[in-house]
Design a protein around this nucleic acid. Structure first.
Lengths: 189, 189
DNA sequence: GTAAAGATTTGATACTCTTCTAATTAAACG
DNA sequence: CGTTTAATTAGAAGAGTATCAAATCTTTAC
């Protein structure tokens, strides 16, 4: 599962989302630098630079090499290339949240529009109506055939306007009809 | 010039460096959503989602399509691909700060170690010594030849230990010697 | 071994930005 | 045209974090 991967990506953006830190990365892309040199170049104090460098180190973006008492930092080009590789493809992003589905929202819609088994009203917005129709379709067995009067009866358990809802179930592709007989379609996931 | 480009990149990271916002991008990568749907899915209030969506809009990462009174948002896949393209190559980063050179730091070193024309001491650290030696080399004309006594004399204007400094100038590649004659080298940039 | 240089850690302050509630706007529908 | 639904804007409270000064640590140099 990709919850960790999501957090990694988020951490990556957080680390780079600071002006000073991004400048440090830019400077180190060009040359090896000591902490003091970075501080004077950036116009900040050494502790600030140290602080930022530790954050960059957690991503593995910079490497340190001691020389005497000074610490020379440089950019890890390999890590940079790896990080940039497919950082933001649509597929990657979608996969990071694919487990966080639409369920929560759909449950809320059902809660909002149902009073027990009774449908309080038919939602005006298409997306909400689809949620209701999806639920309604599930009240029919997938492998059975229903004559029109039975369809109406089942719908009327939940809402009086069976004609409109029956039409919507057909038009939305939730159910099919041939002659006077109806059956439920299993929807494209 | 690339100051604007730097700010753009920084802004990009800032916008994506938020957990809620990154989740929104992930969700919209998979399907078109209303503000309300995003809110319930994420477990936050609508105004919060609106706030994040405006930030994402400034990057052009999301597009809005009104349907009735609801606003349906979707990810702009083209913008995403463009943003990801070479986001973080070393060359790109280096070019973003190439005008912010080492000058500030070098001036500080010269200020620290010089008292007027007199070099107070020879820095122990290699990088600092290089700055001093670079300055010292500039005291020699690039197209002249200097006998050793003259080299010593020029160095002694700034520091008594002409022997050490003369050796360092040769060893560091700042000057060259043949027989008893010295001349300045123009350094690799 | 003591001192000095350079870097890091600690603790405090200030600032930015997320999130909320409440108020406002925009659009559809009777 | 008012009413309702959905979204946005305004304003405030709170969390997170960049920065600094002071203290500590670590390594070299005399």
């Amino acid at each position: 599962m990709s919850q960790e991967e999501f957090q990694t990506l988020l951490q990556f953006f957080k680390v780079l989302a600071d002006e000073t830190r991004l400048k440090i990365v830019g400077i180190l892309a060009g040359r090896e630098c000591s902490v003091e040199e970075l501080a004077t170049t950036l116009g900040v104090r050494e502790p600030t630079v140290s602080h930022h460098l530790t954050k960059l180190k957690t991503l593995g973006l910079v490497r340190m090499r001691p020389e005497g008492t000074t610490h020379l930092y440089r950019l890890d080009a390999e890590a940079l290339r790896a990080a940039n590789k497919d950082l933001l493809t649509r597929e990657k992003l979608a996969s990071l949240v694919d487990d966080m589905g639409e369920d929560a929202w759909q449950r809320k819609i059902l809660r909002d529009f149902f009073d027990g088994d009774r449908l309080k009203e038919i939602p005006a917005s298409r997306k909400k109506r689809d949620v209701i129709l999806g639920w309604l379709a599930e009240q029919f067995a997938p492998d059975r055939r229903y004559p029109e009067p039975e369809v109406n009866e089942i719908i009327k358990r939940h809402h009086p306007d069976s004609a409109t809802l029956r039409r919507e179930l057909i038009g939305g592709g939730w159910m099919a009809r041939e002659g006077g007989v109806y059956w439920r379609l299993t929807r494209n996931a």
